[in-house]
Amino acid sequence: MTLLNDPIQIDKDKIFNRIGYDGDSVPSSRTASLVEDYIDNYYDLIAPSYSHTVKTIKSVNQNRVDVGDSVILESYKVARLMERCEKVAFFALTIGGYLEELATHLADKGLVLQATVLDAIGSGTAEKLAARIEQNIREEAGRDSMVVSRRFSPGYCDWNVSQQEMVFRALGNNVPGITLNESMLMVPQKSVSGIIGIGRPGNDIEQYNPCITCLEKDCPGRRR
């Protein structure tokens, strides 16, 4: 499938950003060549897989969205989005476990710098893959003259990470390559899951962003 097999272009500057460099700072030659080397070779370390499904929203109230089949989303902010939507797409994806196994192995050997760079590349790859899947869902919805919202993942804002269970339930508890641990964290870690609202144009679905009115200005998850 092209969605998974097309090469994922990793932006070097974003990796530098993830490992602590801000806008104007210049990495040393050592750091730059380490990052470049991993970007050139990381592809052998990933085995992407994903699952997605679209469900019709049954009902929405103050803090709760009922999608049927015992899938209940509990969040005030998710409910405010879903009351504008007709459907909701659920997705989960992973880049597989090899990359993080290698990062752990390197860290165990005291090579924490290499492990940190590899971890950043893994996170960047998972995010790129998530953006690609989001675009795919957007295009599918567009074919039915619908629009889509941003992605929301369990753990964002008032949507508790324990709700991961609901995302997986919506996906039939069958997401290739990903399991949930007892804290509802995905294993492998380099995985992304979430929901995307789908509805008719003109309902402020694409622009819906609870961060704009949120008072937690220093929140690490704040989106513009």
Partner: peptide
Amino acid sequence: KKEYFIPDMLASAEAVGAAMD
């Protein structure tokens, strides 16, 4: 002073860690 960044500091810490071993 932002002359060094996390990777620079990790490299130094790794070097000292290896010496400590």
